[in-house]
């Protein structure tokens, strides 16, 4: 399958700021499941910094811009050929051992409820893959998809308590429950194509910035999130396997993987910090489409 991606993020500053530094995890790594045909990340202002492949196999590219700056736009355009591997990450080169993904972070800290959910889900499981599927199923059942119920800094425990959330919350909860049972797990950010090239899959995106709360988030909201997030769990014998607890499935050819981390902050496609006191607002447009062949 060939996916086309258009993803534009505009940060606006009022009053203008003195400068901006960003760290981008916006370039898909090559693996058996995805092959980049064209890919371009353009920034409206400033200069590119150094880029490097991190220990988890993701390309990280830094970018900085001088002020005064009232807005900066990051635009991603690309085409990627994807293959359905039932969520299994194959041929992805990385250094970090799975055990390093057992540590807790603030949003993925397992409270009693998450630990119980993890333990109950594993009762009667037959093998490692079955365990992972049961965990993902339990999180899907416990948290209803409900945009607006949570925000960028909601923790896994809070989302489970609410029983509502979006993909970020499902991913955090699955990660926390898995780690509480000794299963390495990590957060994956990426894209999800929800339909053919008819412009229907535009959506808003949240949780990709730090340093300031977005004052307002604009964009075309739909039922789906083209900028998506899911979790990967370590399954002995298979390696890393993706689980999208929000949609109760494993990633297939409609999914495009950008990068991973211990939590949403670690895997964020764009992290940025502005120098100056300007209030920040965010504008995001994402369209991910299945190219007509």
């Amino acid at each position: 399958m060939i996916l086309t991606v258009f993803h534009a993020t505009t940060y606006r500053y009022d009053p203008p700021v003195r400068g901006v530094v960003q760290s981008h995890r916006l370039t898909p790594a090559r693996s058996r499941g995805q092959r980049v045909l064209d890919w371009d990340v353009a920034v409206s202002d400033g200069v590119a910094g150094g880029g490097f492949r991190d220990g988890a196999g993701d390309w990280v590219q830094s970018h900085s811009a001088h002020g005064p700056l009232s807005a900066i736009t990051v635009t991603v355009r690309g085409r990627v050929e994807t293959t359905d591997l039932a969520g299994v990450l194959r041929g992805h080169r990385e250094r970090i051992p799975p055990e390093a993904f057992l540590r807790e972070t603030p949003p993925t800290r397992a409270d009693v409820a998450l630990t119980d959910l993890g333990r109950d889900a594993l009762a009667g499981a037959s093998d490692a893959l079955d365990r992972a599927h049961r965990l993902a199923g339990a999180v899907h059942a416990a948290i209803a998809f409900q945009p607006g119920a949570t925000h960028a800094h909601t923790t896994a425990a809070e989302a489970l308590g609410l029983g509502e959330g979006v993909c970020q919350d499902h991913a955090h909860a699955l990660i926390a429950a898995a780690r509480s049972q000794g299963i390495p797990a990590r957060y994956v950010s990426g894209y999800l194509a929800m339909g053919l090239a008819d412009g229907q899959s535009q959506s808003q995106v949240q949780g990709v910035m730090i340093g300031a709360e977005p004052q307002q988030v604009q964009g075309v909201a739909t039922d789906y999130e083209a900028a998506h997030a899911w979790a990967e769990l370590w399954v002995d014998g298979l390696g890393w396997v993706g689980f999208d607890a929000a949609n109760a499935c494993c990633p297939d050819a409609r999914y495009l993987r950008l990068g991973s981390g211990l939590d949403s902050r670690g895997a964020a496609p764009i992290r940025g910090i502005a120098r100056g006191a300007g209030a920040e607002s965010l504008d995001v447009a994402v369209a991910v489409e299945i190219a007509q062949q």
């Binding site: 492949r53 991190d54 220990g55 988890a56 250094r95 970090i96 055990e99 390093a100």
Partner: peptide, 14 residues
């Protein structure tokens, strides 16, 4: 090593 607070995944592979 891997679960040690002082192990820093951000510099693995560097």
């Amino acid at each position: 090593v891997w679960r040690n607070e002082a192990y820093e995944p951000a510099v693995a592979g560097i």
